[in-house]
Design a protein around this nucleic acid. Structure first.
Lengths: 250, 250
DNA sequence: TCCGAGTAGATTGTCAACAATCGCACAATG
DNA sequence: CATTGTGCGATTGTTGACAATCTACTCGGA
């Protein structure tokens, strides 16, 4: 999320070595928003489920005011949808949404990879290599949760090292949505090797500073990812594991 | 902002022709957020200015609750920044922010142009041609507000016809920021003809279905736009017309 | 004259209570 | 048997008031 504007008004005594960190008391709505963000990302709130504000307020130990503000934040991000006088629900995505998600994700990560190459920071290549190395550890189970998480970390770092507030902000949202989809329909990679090789190729292209090659690789990687989620031709329709789980009305 | 999820649960009686539109009662925070959005876009709130919630609540005739929720929404978008216990302020951007803005904007509009070409909808080409035609009307004053607005309309439509919720959402925010910058530092185009030609070239490439050419044109167009705002080499630093106008403490 | 403490004003952050609205289940009717 | 009307329960939407915090100003002392 990054605070971006950390430099406050304490730049006066510049000859002094900084001892204390400039204290960043996060606002309550921001904390709540982050916690909800994580909860949605890790599947605690499945797509389609309702977020009752009375209940959440009690769980978090805050009043409904700050909670509502946090929820509006997620609504603006597109992670929640509001049904007036009914409540807020976690988005559930159909095929078109997934396609849209990958369009946006491709746009962001293409730009990110370009920036990373432009910056040519050894640290970024090291970080990405580490991420791939982490994936290798889970090669045995190419569709397990650990591998999925390592995959996420890779892409997260990629955008992080692009050093762009705006790209990062959008990407964070999209990644949560991606997690939701991956959780819903698990098991799509044929082998762990393919998954790792695709990422390694990206790192190699970045390390070589070959922007056009990296760009093409990223586009392919994204297209593959999309096709793994939806069979191209219309497959399953709605991603929602909860919602209306009431066994009545047979 | 689009509601996207209009289809509710009323798909049962499908043999009936729809007569009444499905009524979309917007929530109060959403309305307020939109109004603030517009106000920031049209310069009613200059960058750096404080948005006092008591005052705004009185102006809009609502309570502070819904207002705060709306402000949180804009904060999530990055249009406002929160100084804890001090208030919310309209962002003021330095050169790095402007660069970042153009990175994100390039990413979004590149993806948009690709989608528009992919859809190959005659309507989109017509709409974009109209936008360029509108620009032509203001050719006499290439740096006036009308021309700037027409320019905005062009890019707005481009992303609109990409038919992507996520790209549109991000672009909407970026466009507001762009407006802010353009307002602060006006007058950068040498001639109206250049400005129009660049856009016409984009339309032509789209109409021809030439994605690679359109892509290159867009990249150049964005780079030019960025260089018009900042002289590449460090020029002016902070864009903020208000904020700290107190003459004390020299 | 300059510096520090203290105070006053204003603004935000938080909370609890009230009012309005909606969906669901059941009963009544053609 | 299908459809409409009604009551209930629950949840959201909104409001006003109170507490905490910060900034700016003034006053007293060196």
């Amino acid at each position: 999320m990054a605070d971006a504007r950390s430099r406050g008004r304490g730049d006066s005594t510049s000859g002094r070595t900084r001892v204390l960190a400039p204290i960043v008391q996060e606002s309550t709505p921001a904390i709540i928003a982050r916690k909800l963000h994580e909860a949605i990302a890790d599947g605690s709130f499945p797509p389609g489920s309702q977020l009752t504000e009375s209940g959440l307020a009690a769980d978090l130990g805050v009043s409904r005011g700050p909670l509502r503000e946090a929820m509006q934040r997620l609504t603006a991000e597109g992670l929640l949808v509001s049904h007036r006088n009914r409540g807020l629900f976690v988005v559930s995505m159909d095929d078109d949404d997934i396609r849209d998600m990958y369009i946006a994700r491709t746009a962001v990560e293409r730009a990110a990879i370009e920036q990373v190459i432009r910056h040519d920071d050894p640290e970024s290549i090291a970080a990405l290599s580490d991420a791939v190395a982490l994936m290798r550890e889970y090669a045995a189970d190419p569709n397990g949760p650990d591998m999925a998480e390592a995959d996420m970390v890779f892409h997260q770092r990629l955008v992080e090292y692009a050093r762009s507030q705006r790209l990062s902000r959008l990407h964070e949202t999209i990644l949560v949505e991606t997690r939701m989809c991956l959780r819903a329909m698990r098991g799509t990679y044929s082998s762990g090797k393919d998954r790792i090789d695709e990422h390694q190729a990206l790192v190699d292209a970045i390390a070589a500073g070959d922007a056009p090659a990296a760009d093409v690789l990223m586009i392919d990687h994204m297209r593959d990812g999309l096709h793994r989620l939806i069979g191209d031709a219309a497959a399953g329709e709605e991603v929602s594991q909860t919602a209306e789980s009431s066994p009545s009305r047979t």
